[in-house]
């Protein structure tokens, strides 16, 4: 049965509260593949939006309005998360209360660069050379992010990861990878802000 049929009655045009559809993976029919394609996600997003959007329940009961809001929130937050493999992994670990952000030190492999970057960022005004340097660093770190993405997808594949509870060793590996990504992402954002200003 498609996810639409499991939450919507076409005959009565009413939404059904289905406790089995409670996560992004359930709604987007990707419980066995945590990295679905963009086409798959968009197809579900558009087909569900046509039936469950709150505007279509303007004159409905309070319960139907609440259900429409609930599924629409899940749909909107879901596509944003599932389109990004890092966000997906973060959501998945959080879902099973296994996300650990305590180890958020500077990843050793980029330690040298970080000192140089912080020095440039601490300047009140930056020279053209320094700006160029920041642009190079952004490019370099975006390359690193691509590598991390590949590593994450390999982990998914290697450990046949699905939406169920992960084993602790795998969770630890993914936590470390996500923390590195999160650090790099923040650094890129700081550099972009500095360039914009």
């Amino acid at each position: 049965m498609s996810v639409l049929n499991s939450i919507y009655n076409h005959h009565t045009k009413l939404l059904i509260r289905n406790p089995e559809i409670s996560t992004y993976f359930d709604l987007y029919e990707c419980t066995t593949n945590l990295a679905p394609s963009k086409e798959h996600l968009e197809s579900i997003y558009y087909s569900l939006s046509k039936y469950i959007h709150p505007d279509l329940f303007q004159n409905a009961s309070e319960e139907q309005k609440a259900l429409s809001n609930y599924y629409s929130e899940l749909l909107n937050n879901g596509i944003k998360t599932l389109k990004n493999v890092f966000k997906t992994a973060d959501y998945w670990l959080n879902l099973h209360t296994l996300r650990d952000t305590t180890n958020n030190r500077v990843p050793p492999e980029i330690m040298g660069h970080v000192f140089e970057i912080q020095e440039i960022l601490s300047e009140d005004a930056r020279t053209d050379d320094q700006k160029e340097e920041l642009e190079d660093y952004i490019e370099h770190f975006e390359g690193l992010e691509t590598k991390l993405k590949k590593q994450l997808l390999s982990l998914f594949e290697e450990h046949k990861i699905n939406s169920d509870i992960p084993n602790e060793n795998v969770a630890q590996l993914i936590n470390a990878l996500l923390n590195t990504y999160s650090y790099i992402e923040k650094l890129i954002s700081q550099m972009e802000d500095a360039l914009d200003s």
Binding site: S49, K50, H53, D55, L56, Q58, N59
Partner: peptide
């Protein structure tokens, strides 16, 4: 038009 979508006068159109 949005008013008509809300009242049900216009169907199969939705605004995200």
């Amino acid at each position: 038009i949005q008013g008509a979508i809300l009242s049900g006068d216009i169907q199969e159109t939705v605004l995200l």
